[in-house]
Design a protein around this nucleic acid. Structure first.
Length: 431
RNA sequence: UCCGCUGUAGCUCAGUGGUAGAGCAACCGGCUGUUAACCGGUUGGUCGCUGGUUCGAGUCCAGCCGGCGGAGCCA
């Protein structure tokens, strides 16, 4: 009897007869010998089938078996230097589960549009596996670090009654007789749960109905948003650099194989260790001007500006003290200069741009009420949020890290669309 | 929303106003160590759509539709 083994565990079964269940990734044939690449979801291994080993009719039909046909292969695990994995299977039994015909993705090159149309099949491919495995590892590393540092995961709702920052960029939906909006951030609810539990985070999908069409935007993306009571602007940045360093180092340790598949330069990732350099918004503007950029003071940075700023550093950087006017209504103004906020963005290296936005929140009731009015937000809808300043308000801070941008950076991918199984993009919601 | 590029076989592309092409995939055959295998053969077309110019349009023009790249906005 042979036992069902996954490719990732094959090394522990050398010399044994095993059963593989998977799909035919590729077949090459040399007359009386078939080389079948068997993909089982955990890896790819080559099964060698000789004409003597199996029924001649079956041997003949295997030659014609289409790519991605599903099958069960039984055979003996042997060590072999010619295999990248170090092992292959000398098959003596092959069962075809379901034949596939005309699988559209071939070993030759394809355009991005075609691959996105076939995303449901594209995710079977090696590089997509590597990126999505690294995504899973990043998510787990984020949660592990937070769980191990006293944070409680308290998820916030996706259906919300009002906007965090206005309704223009929200997806609207029906909620029986009312309107509801898909959450663009768990931020405000996080402040309530932080006042309940001290240190919390939410991790889930968020939605923005912005008509942006760039390599770093999705309509639906995942954010991990920690929030901490009794935490100021400085402590917030220290937590971010520890957190992010842990995530990057964990991926380097646990996903070396996948980083290699993606041909990622890991030396650049190895340098990602706390502390991260800090520059103020005003310093950043000076740096841009000295590089010949025509920058209008008070504006936010564009993608090329962020690339120019990060290229001087070998690790992520904080850009702090943005103009109050361009930041969210809940950001705390710097007491030394109220025209600037106690907020910071983290810019990833190598031109990957902003991956974290965060800062200290306004704790004072009167100032927050004033800000809500200044931003022309419906004050009544924000009463629960203002309550947080009425009942034991404390200094508190938090941040949000965009998962797909982080995955794109760590994987060295040119576009966030490959960092999520089924990206929702401006002009694409299929499949 | 704006700017640029682009649309020809299942895929990636070539195609000078005058007979619709290649490589890969698929299909048929060959090969006992292949790694995007290789060798021989076969099939495969509403040239994005609509209109216009012309004796003649894949090719030139206009509009529309799709794709890709970038900008703005943002994580």
């Amino acid at each position: 009897m042979s036992s069902w083994v996954r490719v990732e565990d094959i090394g522990a079964h050398e010399g044994e007869k095993v059963e593989l269940r998977g799909w035919l990734a590729r077949i090459r044939s040399s007359g009386k010998l078939h080389f079948m690449q068997i993909r089982d979801g955990s890896g790819i291994i080559q099964a060698v089938v000789t004409k003597q080993a199996i029924d001649p009719e079956l041997f003949k039909s295997l030659k014609k078996l289409g790519t991605e046909s599903s099958l069960v292969v039984r055979g003996t695990v042997t060590a072999d230097d010619r295999s990248k994995l170090g092992f292959e299977i000398q098959a003596d039994e092959v069962e075809i589960v379901s034949e596939a015909e005309g699988y559209p993705i071939t070993p030759k090159e394809h355009g991005e549009g075609f691959l996105m149309d076939n995303r449901h099949l594209w995710i079977r491919q090696r590089k997509q596996h590597a990126a999505l495995r690294i995504r899973a590892t990043i998510m787990k590393a984020m949660q592990d670090w937070l769980d191990d540092n006293g944070f409680l995961r308290v998820d916030t709702p996706i259906l919300t009654p009002a906007a965090c920052e206005g309704t223009t960029t929200l997806f609207e939906t029906e909620y029986f007789e009312e309107k509801a909006y898909l959450s663009q951030s768990g931020q405000l609810y996080n402040e309530a749960t932080a006042a309940a539990f001290g240190k919390v985070y939410t991790f889930g999908p968020t939605f923005r109905a912005e008509k942006s069409k760039t390599r770093r935007h999705l309509m639906e993306f995942w954010m991990c948003e920690p929030e901490m009571a009794f935490c100021d602007f400085e402590m917030n940045m220290e937590i971010q650099e520890q957190f992010l360093s842990y995530v990057v180092q964990t991926v380097l340790e646990k996903r070396a194989f996948e980083l290699d598949v993606l041909e990622r330069d890991t030396e650049k990732l190895a340098q990602v260790k706390a502390p991260f350099p800090r520059i103020t918004y005003d310093e950043a503007v000076e740096r841009l001007k000295s590089k010949g950029v025509e920058f209008e003071d008070g504006n936010d940075f564009g993608a090329t500006d962020e690339t120019l700023l990060s290229e001087d550093f070998d690790r992520p950087i904080f850009v702090t003290h943005f103009p109050t006017a361009i930041k969210a209504f809940y950001m705390k103004p710097d007491p030394k200069n109220p025209a600037r906020v106690l907020g910071a963005d983290v810019l990833a290296p190598e031109g990957y741009g902003e991956i974290i936005g965060g800062g200290e929140r306004i704790a004072d009731l009167e100032l927050l009420e004033q800000r809500v009015k200044e931003h022309e937000l419906p004050v009544d809808s924000y009463q629960w949020y203002l309550d947080l300043r009425r009942y034991g308000s404390v200094p508190h801070s938090g941040f949000g890290i965009g998962l797909e941008r982080t995955v794109a950076w760590i994987c060295g991918l040119p576009h966030v669309r490959e960092t999520i199984p089924f990206p929702r993009m401006l002009t694409r919601m299929y499949p």
